[in-house]
């Protein structure tokens, strides 16, 4: 087990299960996810589309779309149960103690509201500031996220800003109330690579300055390599591997993580050499295989993998490195 004291855990999700109602009855999208974020830690949550990474985060704030709901599991923030919390209490957490940054800054900002107002809103609501104070603080926030001419930009509408600038505004809104935790859901996916680099550097710098915890959701392993402390790899709605970042890149234990890392083209590759790839596609919700969800695509799968679901367990050699794979666990025991 990890030696981390539970009280140090800012966010602690256990056995979270999310189902969607379909024509053919409920289908599991998220299947017993275990995740935690320690104080001051940056966690990368990595997975392909449909693996449930975004829904998990939305479910914490009870922001799930219709027909999708949490059926099992617990979620605690700073020791408080997020699921039994009253709505008014939850609203204080949302946008107050936990800030959000979404993927698409164009659709996540209100197009008919000046960005100054959008920044001031959480400050007035959560911090009880008056309008003048909120506006002043909004200007500071824009400066904080590196928007040139910050004060003049307060009266701009979202469409007057570029994509990168809008994402900075989103981050400013996320940070408005000095949150203890910032959840960033694919915040750079819609951006160009040079702008992406700007945003990653900005978040790094802000974290070091403000000391908050971060959950960074992404599909791009390379992107978070230099940013996060720990990585949780999701596949088909379960955490298959959870490890300190250096460990994960140096010694990936789960065949899915290995496949994912191997399919990223590397500098040392010869031109046009075959990339190692994972055959097949992830299972759709409602079509989950029995046993390990990765077994049908797994090159190492054995009989037991098709039959039983592996549990996320610490590898004996390294306490913080946990993996849900029969083969990997046995290999390490043998060694």
């Amino acid at each position: 087990m990890t030696k981390t004291n539970t009280s140090e855990r800012l966010l602690d999700v256990k056995g979270l299960t999310i189902e969607i109602e379909t024509r053919n009855g409920p289908a599991t999208i998220v299947d017993g996810i275990d995740l935690h974020v320690n104080k001051g830690e940056t966690l990368g949550v990595v997975g392909e589309s449909g693996c449930g990474k975004s829904l998990t985060m939305l479910s914490l704030m009870r922001l799930l779309p219709n027909k999708i709901r949490v059926t099992k599991g617990t979620a605690h923030f700073a020791g408080r149960d997020l699921q039994t919390m009253s709505n008014s209490e939850l609203r204080k957490v949302r946008g107050g103690e936990v800030g959000f940054v979404f993927q698409d800054p164009m659709t996540s900002l209100n197009p008919v509201m000046r960005i100054g107002q959008q920044l001031a809103e959480p400050l007035i609501y959560h911090r009880g500031m008056n309008k003048a104070q909120a506006r002043k603080r909004a200007g500071e926030l824009l400066k904080l996220v590196g928007i040139p001419g910050a004060e003049d930009r307060l009266d701009a509408y979202p469409h007057e800003l570029s994509g990168g600038m809008r994402q900075r505004v989103m981050i400013a809104i996320g940070l408005a109330c000095n949150p203890q935790l910032l959840i960033a859901d694919e915040p750079t996916t819609a951006l160009d690579v040079t702008i992406q680099a700007q945003i990653v550097d900005l978040v790094k710098e802000l974290r070091d300055r403000l000391g908050m915890s971060i959950v960074w959701i992404t599909h791009d392993l390379a992107l978070i390599a230099g940013l996060v402390d720990r990585v949780a790899v999701l596949y088909a709605g379960t955490v298959v591997e959870d490890a300190p970042v250096d460990d994960l890149f140096a010694r990936p234990a789960h065949p899915y993580t290995q496949g994912l890392l191997a399919s990223i083209p590397k500098l040392s590759d010869e031109r046009a050499s075959r990339l190692s790839s994972i055959g097949g596609t992830p299972p759709e919700p409602g079509r989950r295989p029995k046993g390990c969800p990765f077994a049908p695509r797994c090159p190492l799968a054995e009989a037991i993998c098709h039959d039983k679901v592996p549990v996320l367990e610490s590898l004996v050699s390294a306490g913080a490195h946990r993996v849900a794979c029969f083969v990997a666990q046995r290999k390490l025991e043998a060694a």
């Binding site: 790839s277 055959g279 097949g280």
Partner: peptide, 8 residues
Amino acid sequence: VVPMATTD
């Protein structure tokens, strides 16, 4: 050509 996994 790597065929698609038959499971899907």
